[in-house]
Amino acid sequence: MSIDEQLAREGIRACLARLARGEDRRDAGLIRSAFWPEARLDYGVFEGDFAAYLAWVVPGSEAILNTQHVLGQSYIELSGGTAKAETQVISYHRFAFGAGDERDSTIGGRYLDAFEQREGEWRIAARTMIYDWLQDGGAAVDWGQGLMGNPLSAPHFAGRAHGDWSESFFGASA
């Protein structure tokens, strides 16, 4: 594999990681940096252009308190300045349906992305989500109170979509 192919693959993987972080933190700047402005997306529950997607995902539903997208392997086929990639994903979501009624759900699936490289930068031109499985975790446990019987030493250890401590760790990028 040539150096150019290795750099292309790393650029694609870096784009995928930025997007996952952007969606988990509802960071419009990071999400915007992963898609070309004219990109098309189809998640089954949303289909449309990038502007509509960004307005849908940021700020996101107030009922979704937290998400975490864990990316697995990416199968990438390069073709000059374009590429196709299939990336495994497991995504966790905590939903709040009312006072004290929170549920956990985990989805396993794959992103099918068409990438384009422009001026040396790889971004997504089209995305389709494939859902392979869903696990309803039932009533959520309040991990903010501690783990395995041990209290957390500070409130910033519990992750959240808005106001997560990692925002100050990296500095705001939106």
Rank of each mutant, 00 (worst) to 15 (best):
M1Q: 11
M1N: 07
E5I: 04
L7N: 06
R13A: 13
A14R: 13
C15N: 11
A17E: 12
L19W: 09
D24R: 01
R25L: 10
G29H: 05
G29K: 02
S33D: 14
A39S: 02
L41V: 04
V45L: 09
E47T: 12
D49I: 01
A52N: 10
A55R: 14
V58K: 08
P59K: 07
L65P: 04
V70W: 14
Q73S: 12
S74C: 10
S74P: 06
I76S: 09
G80E: 07
A83R: 03
A83P: 05
K84Y: 10
Q88M: 08
V89F: 12
I90L: 13
R94H: 02
R94E: 15
S105L: 14
S105M: 12
G108Q: 05
W122C: 03
R123N: 07
A126R: 13
A126W: 07
A126Q: 11
R127L: 05
T128S: 11
I130H: 13
Y131L: 14
L134I: 15
L134K: 14
Q135M: 08
G137V: 06
G144Y: 05
L152H: 15
S153P: 08
A154S: 13
H156S: 07
F157D: 04
F157K: 08
R160V: 07
S166G: 06
E167A: 09
S173P: 00
A174R: 13
A174S: 12
